[in-house]
Amino acid sequence: MVGIVVVSHSRKAAEGIRDVATEMGGDARVEAVGGTGDGRIGTSPEPISRAIADAADGNGVVVLVDLGSAVMNAEIAIEEAELEEEVVLADAPVMEGALNAAVAAGAPDATVDSVRMAAEDAQRVKKFG
């Protein structure tokens, strides 16, 4: 199954987003990572790399991020992960994108691209009408 990683400045936010996403996409493998190594608000590349490795089962990984350093540190983590399988960043609102991705990852013919595109569809989410 395509793995999903949720990266936020806050570990609690990342875990909360994972919980909401897996409530819909129950079977999806979603790793939550956030905050710095010493528990502050922020991000750091090593924990993101570990989360990517944990989410990877040979079918690729889609990474969702919140903002700023999360984007840049996720890029660095992907560059340094050196996995055989494909790891991509989705350009999407992290909460809605994670939910879309978790649902898409459960489809029988899911691929890294289909999951990434589902996540990026969240850019168009309208909450009223």
Partner: peptide, 15 residues
């Protein structure tokens, strides 16, 4: 700097 900064300056300065 990459590992320890935590904010955007980590990847920017460090990277």
């Amino acid at each position: 700097l990459l590992s320890e900064v935590g904010g955007a300056s980590g990847p920017l300065y460090g990277g």
